[in-house]
Amino acid sequence: MTPHLARLLVGITVDILRSLAIAVGIVLITFFLIRMIPGDVVDVRGLEGSLTYAQQSAMRDDLGLSRGWIEQFFTWLSMISTGDLGVSSRFATPIVDLIATVLPSTLKLGLAALGIGLFFGIALPTLACVYPRSIFVGLVDFVTIWSITIPTFSIGILCVVVFAVWLGWIPAIGNFVVPAIILGMDIAGTIAKMLHEDMKDIEGADYIRTARAKGLSPARIVIGHILPNAFTIVIALAGLILAGVLTGALTMEVVFGLPGLGTLTLQAIKGRDYPVVQAVIIWLGLAVIFANLLTDLLQRFIDPRLRKS
C-alpha cells in the first residue's frame, strides 16, 4: 500500500467516525430536548376535553410516557434502529406514513428551488467574472446580501399580498411556483457568494496569468480554468445548501399553505406530538450529516490538495 493510499484511507475513516459521533449526538440531544417540554400530548388532548382522568393515565401507560426518560430512550432507540420511526401519539398513524404522505410535496418544492438556485448561483458569478465591469457584479452582491438578510417568509407574505390579494394572479393558498422562485433565489445567494469570492481569489493565481498570456479569451479563462477550480466550494457547501433548502421549505410551506414536512412539523410542535417532532428533526439532521460526509469524501477524491493534509 502506498503512503498516499494509506493517508486517503485514514482520512476517510476519520470522516466516517466523526459523522457517526455527530449523528449519535444529534439523536441524544433531540430526544432529551424534546422530553424537556412541559406538558405532553395527553395534556393537550385533556385540555381539548376529550379525555377523562382515568383515560389520560391509561393513555400515558400505553404510550410509555409514564416510564422514566432513560427507559423511554432505550425503548425508542431499539425501535428506530430497526428503521421503525414509531407511531404519532396524536393521530395514531405510523410516522413513516405521515412523512411519506407529505415528503413528495416538500421534495418537489426543494428540488425546484435547488434547480433555480444552482442555475442563478453559478451563472451570475460566472458572468460577473467574465464581465467584471458589468451589472452582474452588482447583481451578485445584491443576491448575496438579499439572501442573508431578507427572510424568505417576509418576501413570501409580500408576494401573497401583491400577487394573490391585490392582483389576483395566484391563489393565496397552495401556490407552488412563487415559493420555489423565492427559495431558489435564496439558495442562489448562498452559492453565488462563495463561488464569486473563490473565483476572485483564483483569478490572481499564476496559472491564470499564464492562460491570459497565451491569449485565451476572458470567457474561456473563466469557464475553462476558474470555474472548475472554484466549483469545489459548491460541493463543499452541499450540506449547507441542503439545510437551506429544507429549513426554507419549512417556512415557505407555512406561508403558502402547502402540505409538507414544514406544515407537519409545525402541527406536531403545537400538538406536542413528540415522536413526530423527534423523527423530523433527527432525520433532517441525519440528512445534513450524510450530505456533509458525502461531500467530505468526494472532495478527498477530486481535490488533490486535500489528500496531502
Binding site: G25, I26, I29, I34, A243, I281, L284, G285, V288
Partner: peptide, 10 residues
Amino acid sequence: ALPGILFALA
C-alpha cells in the same frame, strides 16, 4: 449539524 433554525426550534 442541526443547521439554520432547526437547533433553535428544538
